[in-house]
Design a protein around this nucleic acid. Structure first.
Lengths: 244, 244
DNA sequence: GTGGTCATGTGGTCAGAACCAGTGCTGGCT
DNA sequence: AGCCAGCACTGGTTCTGACCACATGACCAC
């Protein structure tokens, strides 16, 4: 069926894993289909069961396969796979929803960071930070007010850039080589404060989704802390959860 | 240091995993601390290395430990940990927040399923389903109203069980061997409907977090659809996002 | 001091074997 | 016909043992 090359320095289980993944991706093995049993794979490929199990286990962890004790191993339904939980900025998020994102800059300055920001970005006390407040629109309608705090040391020249027509993440990536790798968010339903309500063109105290986000670079350093208010009537947050 | 009991039917690697997890949770082993090497653990506990590796590997996958080739295994920085995005029921969720969960059953019956439920659970039209509505409390205070729809075929005898004092997921697991594997959620900030507000003891139209969840079993069949209203002033939802 | 070598300790990969624990079919008994 | 025990499969757990790849520090030669 296929040969694993020992010469190739790649571990056998990785080679097997990629081989299986390819069958699944190309649709040669369709969702619900049963894989050859672990012992059959051992014999056919002339490798030990521990190797086969390691390859399959990783694919199970990734959600591409699932096992049923006593019955066998099967290809997962691809629809279920998590297209959710992806870290994107407002721009990408809204585009993914089929709408046209835009922005109006309300404030952009270097100023003293409040303690919540100091803590989130792991700054020293009394350090200034960049405060960027924008009204975010989807298809021209106000959807959210977003206040981002950025580490000044990492991206000072940001103050001169055009943040109405470009994605912040895109600029950070192109100009400063900062890519978001990971983010933690807190979501809460609150009554909209009056000033924010005026910007969003909703009645004050309307329900809004308040989102706090801390974004980390690949080296696990936080570079951004954002507080947003999303109109409750216009924005739905999607998330997927997996069994521990 | 500690003894693994063979009598206990739990697999050795699970016992070891829980033992390590406890050290980490209680803070006996602090973030950054190096664990005893795999071979040392083998000798001390008189088990094979493959067992030790399986226990550690799962904790690594969960983000509680990390390994460095050639140096050792270490306790992760807890803040980075994604104890987030774990699929749990209300009971586990509230316990994890350090509060005491409880429930009051408002409704439990077999009835016609609305189309949203038919669709989410992939039922045939005009199929009845189990409707379970509960007021959920944390430390005795109303926190959420939860309406769960369950596939009748999978868990009919549920109608006779004690759902005030037991976790639904625990019962599903013990009685019907149904384990949640994956869930998709939608979250939205809305104004609380009057009847729900009375149950939650808040003013009507207060902001609440409305959460829809579809829960899937390991075989990717949906078995539960839940609509919940969480008090906006008492509940914060945590989520982590990863770079695609 | 600087730079290379090597011993040692770490995790990473893999073989072969054994037994346990669910699932589902089959054949024999009632 | 219907039930149930047994068997042949599946994945789940665990062992012994081996070698590879990487990190580190001690040692030696320059």
């Amino acid at each position: 069926m296929f040969t694993l090359s020992k010469k190739n320095h790649l571990p056998l289980y990785i080679q097997l894993k990629e081989w299986i993944a390819e069958r699944v991706d190309t649709g040669e093995w369709k969702p619900g289909m049963q894989l050859p049993s672990e012992r059959v794979l051992c014999d056919d490929l002339n490798i030990s069961r521990i190797t086969v199990r390691q390859a399959i286990s990783e694919l199970v962890t990734e959600g591409r396969l699932y096992r049923v004790h006593g019955r066998g191993t099967f290809v997962s339904d691809q629809k279920i796979q998590q297209g959710l939980n992806r870290l994107t900025g407002f721009t990408q998020d809204i585009k993914a929803r089929g709408q046209e994102p835009s922005a109006r800059v309300l404030d952009l300055q270097l100023t003293d960071a409040p303690t919540a920001v100091i803590h989130a970005l792991k700054l020293k006390a009394n350090t200034p930070a960049i405060r960027l407040q924008r009204l975010r629109l989807a298809d021209g309608e106000p959807l959210a007010v977003e206040t981002a705090w950025l580490n000044d040391k990492l991206c000072h020249p940001l103050l001169d850039l055009d943040l109405e027509n470009h994605s912040l993440y895109q600029l950070l990536s192109e100009k400063f080589n900062i890519q978001p790798a990971y983010a933690e968010q807190r979501l809460q339903a609150v009554a909209c404060p009056a000033p924010t309500a005026r910007l969003l063109k909703i009645r004050k105290a309307s329900p809004v989704l308040q989102i706090y986000r801390t974004t980390f670079a690949p080296n696990e350093r936080p570079f951004e802390y954002v507080e947003s208010f999303y109109r409750g009537d216009k924005y739905i947050f999607y998330v997927s959860l997996n069994h521990g």
